[in-house]
Nucleic acid binder design. Structure first.
Lengths: 201, 201
DNA sequence: GTCTATACCATGATAGAC
DNA sequence: GTCTATCATGGTATAGAC
């Protein structure tokens, strides 16, 4: 019986350590992207030896996948925790705003649109795919409800709207405007939300 | 006097060869991005030895810069060659459509938003910067004229509109929809143009 | 499980013959 | 200017001691 707390404590230590590793990975992924991020940098940021990383994660791809999965789980938690009395269109805007705020703080990795080793690893990662499908479903429902309210154009297929919102969360416009130092973070996010849902015209 | 044609012929050969190199670079940049593109691949696609590449371009960055400069010059030629009787807003849409069509054919490199060695090389490349400023100026004039026509929202600063249009030319939504095989290229471009200027709502 | 040290490989860049 | 062959670097991954 007295063994249980000790084991749990060790496991907690492990979880804390691995969380720190994933934190560092997340930041580096957001700052440099998968290809330019090196395992040396991750190890240095965590403060452990590079070889120790490989005791926790078998490869660079697996490490990045863990970061992406945690991001998706955070997104799912946010979507599920939103005020249900908010109009669907406002919930959609709220999700995009949440993602953009994280990105402004340097915490949102850029997705791998191209054929890199990471993309393949993610497609073979059932946990990642499962979370992604869950998120797609939740967002798809919101989009269809917003369309029923007349708040989303009826001539756009749901998946076009979905992908467009996803793409806005990694919109390079944010980087351009941010590096200009001319607008505040809130202003930049307002611009992006506005151009996404209302257009330029 | 008889020397002139010979020299010109040799120079023409050189230009043709370097054009082939830049073509290959352009395709690989569009397909894999700067970091994942290797000089071996470029050499293989051109059909020459890697060492020969370095007789034409001193570094990988210089090679990529040449591709980006040619792209900018093509863009400038397109903008300057547009029908002047077309309304400014339609000229803007036409430019974005032109870029998206190139991208669908796999010929538009993704810009380096992050701090890679390419970005630094481009910022120190006066030819590149000069072309970029020319394009920004032409596009900025179009945007302001379109705004005067009431076709662009007056609450958006010109540079926000400009960056947003640039960003749409590399929108990952195009890749998502294209890999789905569910829509034709023209449909995808129509979706992107429409969501860019008219929004989702 | 953490460390130091290292194997192994990909890649950017170069040397030197022709 | 093109080639073959090679160097130098840096990065993923691993071995083996503690």
């Amino acid at each position: 019986m007295s063994k249980e707390p000790k084991l749990s404590f060790k496991q907690q230590q492990l979880i804390v350590r691995e969380n720190a590793i994933v934190d560092a990975t997340n930041n580096l992924l957001a700052k440099k992207g998968f290809d330019l991020m090196t395992m040396d940098e991750v190890a240095a940021e965590v403060g452990i030896a590079k070889a120790s990383l490989y005791k926790h994660f078998p490869s660079k791809e697996a490490l990045a996948a863990a970061a992406m999965i945690r991001l998706l789980e955070n997104a799912l938690a946010f979507v599920r925790g939103m005020e249900t009395n908010l109009a669907p269109i406002d919930q959609l805007k709220s999700v995009l705003q949440w993602a953009l705020e994280i990105r402004l703080r340097g915490g949102l990795p850029t997705l791998p649109t191209e054929n890199t080793s990471l993309r393949e690893a993610l497609l073979n990662n059932t946990r990642y795919i499962s979370r992604l499908m869950d998120l797609n479903e939740l967002m798809g429902e919101l989009i269809e409800r917003a369309r029923a309210d007349g708040k989303i154009r009826k001539d756009l297929p749901t998946e076009v709207v979905l992908f467009t919102i996803y793409a806005r969360s990694c919109d390079p416009t944010l980087d351009y405007l941010h590096s200009n130092e001319q607008y505040s973070g809130d202003q930049i996010i307002a611009f992006l939300l506005s151009t996404c849902f209302d257009g330029l015209s």
